[in-house]
Amino acid sequence: MKALALHLALIGALLAVQVVLPPYHYTNVARVMVLAVYAMGYNIAFGYTGLLSLGHALFFAAGMYATGLAVHSAPALLALPLGMLAGAAMALAVGLLALRTAGVAFMIVTLMFAQAGYLTILYYGPVTGGDEGFVLAREARMLAGLDLSADGPRYLTALAIFGVALLANLALVRSGFGRVMVAMRENEERSRMLGYDPFRTKLIALTLSGLYSGTAGAAYALMFGYVGASFAAIQYSILPLLWVLLGGAGTVLGPFFGALLMFYLIDLSSSVTDASNLVVGVALLVLVLFAPKGILGTIRERGARWLP
């Protein structure tokens, strides 16, 4: 009950702060909430199931391109779920092959799939826009009567998607299947001896992770009006890993706080120096040395055991 109240309080706080946020931060926080959904998906695979992937940009891009291309001939209300399903379907297809490996081999195989997807986007430039991508028209970004090019509707839609994703994630990790995922992360062989199928469990977890990633990619395309190959590049597979590590792997709220902190760390440091990546690197180094389990992971370890 305490955990549910905390998560609802965060959603309520994000709803309340929209009244006082200046336009610049209005857009930024909306962007962070969408990217936090992406990080939640990565956390399902890595933080809870122990699957270290470097291919999640493929799932994010699948959702983004499926929705971005679909809105040319279908309303956004249909294009959004299409992008969600595209992310899940891509993760399922990759999982059926990649999960035959484990550890470093799994990481390399997922990276190869992601790079193949990135090169495919570049190759089919006449359809995908290639390296330049394409911009979505304002009319195509109308979702159930809401103009997602406007600050207010965009923020509230991002909050709605984030809120549903957050509460669904909380329900997942507290369910029986969520406990099985953690068991696979901690001791796969013992879980197998208890009768659980590691391949099936990991495949479901990776598919759910792809569903979250595809949702974030689809929402990003509609809310910010741009679809580009850069979102399928390797950095968009590394970023969710960093967000999760910073906020706390294996915690429900960790991805949001990790994405929020890193976004503003880059934003603020870039206003005073050209070496913003150095600032981020130092921050991550400090984290590894003094809070290796991330912000919320460390808080949970030092007293708040009830944090999911």
Rank of each mutant, 00 (worst) to 15 (best):
A93G: 03
A98C: 04
L99N: 01
R100E: 08
R100N: 08
F106A: 07
M107H: 02
M107G: 12
V109T: 12
L111F: 10
A114E: 08
A114I: 06
L119M: 11
L119K: 09
T120K: 07
I121Q: 01
Y123H: 13
Y124A: 12
G129K: 01
G130T: 12
D131K: 10
G133T: 08
F134N: 04
F134P: 01
V135W: 04
A144I: 11
G145K: 08
S149D: 10
G152S: 14
P153F: 04
A158Q: 00
A160H: 09
F162C: 08
A165L: 10
L166R: 00
V173W: 04
G176P: 11
R179K: 15
R179P: 13
V180M: 06
V180T: 10
M181H: 08
M181P: 03
M184H: 12
R185F: 07
R185E: 08
E186S: 14
E188W: 02
E188P: 01
E188Y: 02
R192K: 11
R192A: 05
R192S: 04
Y196P: 01
Y196A: 01
Y196L: 02
T201F: 02
T201R: 01
L208D: 00
L208P: 02
L208T: 01
S209L: 06
G210L: 03
T215H: 07
G225H: 05
